[in-house]
């Protein structure tokens, strides 16, 4: 048994091992209520990671996701008063549109995705600052509960957030496995030149991947704003690194073509366990990003398909 044969199974083995270790060290951890709470806590991050999966699956990257979520918390807080439930549509459209813009810049102007999305992220962040006047904004509690309260409620003692996450996962899984878009994304990720030579509209496929990522980042932002009952241009800072870590430790490498949304679900759970174990081990919140940075490097070094890389710049 070589490393290559174990590699596809590494994510869930890692997850089980982590759960076992943390469970042994802390009796409280394995209690259903704790597990449910932990999972619900991570849902906004999961939604963002779900979107990122599509972009990483085609071998690109989306660095704008966090700024997008930031901007959406502000938009949601500002326009909830006037638009009511329609603010959700505005958020989704804004995310989709900005994602499309990243995709356009990447595919038509041939700007590498890490730069195009960094730039679009900068635009989104600045929009958030401008709209919010650089202040933290608060939603009207009554209105929030009336419009979006269902998002953070519980159904049969299961947090609704988890049900939302599950629904989104199933939709994403359907897109990935059963639609022409999903097939095209796989082809672009695994062999872009062959996809082009087969007559696929590769540019459109890529733009849609960025748009999906943008839209899901926006939904993550919306849910986060509802949870915190407000928004601020930096409120979701600290999301991007764990979200990318989740996609990569889940088993979708930066080179794309393999993995997928189920892998990301596992990856997010790994991140959730790492995060709560840090609390048990008494690691300060300010030090968490250090851990995620190190995990990210380890995950990339382990999972990347070096045969696909000629040079690294």
């Amino acid at each position: 048994m070589t490393f290559e044969t174990i590699k596809p199974h590494l994510p869930w083995i890692t997850l089980l091992a982590l759960v076992a270790v943390v469970g042994v060290m802390n009796d409280n951890f394995l209690r259903p209520a704790n597990l449910l709470g932990m999972a619900a806590e991570i849902v906004p991050l999961f939604i963002m990671a779900l979107g990122l999966t599509f972009v990483i699956y085609i071998g690109s990257i989306d660095l704008s996701a966090q700024s997008m979520a930031n901007m959406i918390t502000v938009i949601a807080s500002v326009y909830l008063v006037t638009l009511g439930p329609w603010v959700a549509l505005l958020c989704a459209v804004a995310g989709f549109g900005l994602g499309m813009l990243s995709g356009y810049v990447t595919t038509r102007l041939l700007v590498p995705s890490f730069i195009s999305t960094l730039a679009v992220g900068g635009v989104a962040f600045s929009l958030a600052q401008w709209l919010s006047g650089q202040r933290a904004l608060y939603m009207d509690a009554a209105q929030r509960n009336e419009t979006f309260g269902w998002m953070i409620g519980t159904t049969a003692s299961i947090p609704n957030e988890l049900l939302i996450a599950l629904a989104l996962l199933l939709i994403a899984l359907f897109v990935e496995r059963r639609t022409t878009l999903g097939r095209a994304l796989k082809a672009v990720g695994a062999g872009e030149l062959a996809a082009t030579a087969s007559g696929l509209n590769v540019a459109r496929v890529k733009m849609l991947a960025f748009a999906i990522s943008g839209m899901l980042a926006a939904l993550a932002g919306l849910l986060f704003a509802v949870k915190l009952s407000g928004g601020a241009p930096t409120i979701a800072n600290g999301f991007l690194l764990p979200a990318i870590v989740a996609v990569l430790v889940g088993g979708t490498p930066l080179t794309g073509g393999v993995g997928g949304v189920v892998n990301t679900a596992i990856g997010v759970l790994i991140v959730a366990v790492i995060r709560s174990s840090m609390v048990y081990f008494g690691i300060d919140a300010t030090q968490q990003q250090m851990v995620f940075g190190l995990v990210l490097i380890a995950a990339i070094a382990l999972t990347i398909d070096r045969a696909k890389l000629r040079t690294v710049k």
């Binding site: 022409t180 095209a184 082809a187 696929l200």
Partner: peptide
């Protein structure tokens, strides 16, 4: 191997790649 087939996709996925519609 670069432009003809997509390695990592199955035979049927490769065969229909040009005619997904």
């Amino acid at each position: 191997k670069i432009e003809g087939i997509v390695a990592g996709m199955s035979v049927y996925e490769n065969m229909t790649l040009s005619q997904l519609g």
